[in-house]
Amino acid sequence: MKHSVLLGAITVAGFTAGAAAADTLGDVQERGTLNCGVTTGLVGFAAPDANGEWEGFDVGVCRAVAAAVLGDASAVNFVTTTGQTRFTALASGEIDMLARNTTWTFSRDTDLAFEFVGINYYDGQGFMIPRELGVSSAKDLDGATVCIQTGTTTELNLADFFRTNNISYEPVPIETNAEAQQQYLAGACDVYTTDASGLAATRASFESPDEHMLLPEIISKEPLGPLVRHGDHEWGDIVRWTLNALIAAEELGVSSANIADLGAAAGENPEVNRLLGTEGELGSYMGLDADWAARAIAAGGNYGELFEKNIGENTPIGLARGLNAQWTDGGLLYSPPFR
């Protein structure tokens, strides 16, 4: 089936790409829904809940963009993509944007002709292993069988890590996170490696998470962010500044709780006023109305709210903010100014 999907996507790329590359904003508005590519299911980042509603940290970005562009956070058509199919889906115009914990790398940005609009999660590749094996460092993994999602940067990092440390391993390539989880729990592999956030999310969905641990080594930089196609800079700007609006909103203290008050009339902080469109008309520069950012923030809250609700310390996934704190709190999140 993968065959036909890929070939189909190529054919689609051949026939429709010329048309789709031009005016994504117009296409989305005409269609009335945003086609957003997400994972096939990674709890906390993108997974359907008990009612079949998609929720998660990456899903929050999709919803924010839909709210900014279409005024309706639910007007999103979530398209599931695997590590193998995601880039073809985006390049062919099947999806308008990809928010699928995708690592920003040089070759993806340049050779694959995509535009990463920012970073919504600073991550690194880690290892998960059952506690009973008694391994405390990734350097003790000589001879281990490692489950790995194929078609990802983690595959290359893994090869580099084991080669530089001069130890051997047996890779077991796997398509989706769900399959990897099943293989790992069955003991068909000793170790599961992917982004540390993904490991934490996967571990949280286990029956007994305490029997598994993450090894201390983080072997790579994995800046994860949403991306769009090269060539439509207006659309890229919209996605980029929607993400920035979520980040700036947290820094400026704008949350889903107080946005109704702050957005009603111009307040004392000019930056907040410009962000929420009560002063100036930044939205019109991108072909949107003045309330675009207010709607994006109201959709799921600011960056901090999205983080706490989906993957924060009070959720089963329990990720600390760490590098993903605001720059004012010692993290790396830093939105350019809204002016």
């Binding site: 890929l6 077991v172 390539p173 796997i174």
Partner: peptide
């Protein structure tokens, strides 16, 4: 489907994915 590394998985899978050369690989 079961992670057997045949030519579809190497050339047609990982290589295409890492290089972005779908058409050539296929």
């Amino acid at each position: 489907a079961v992670g057997y590394m045949d030519v579809r998985s190497t050339l047609g899978g990982i290589t295409i994915n890492q290089t972005g050369r779908e058409l050539e690989g296929m």
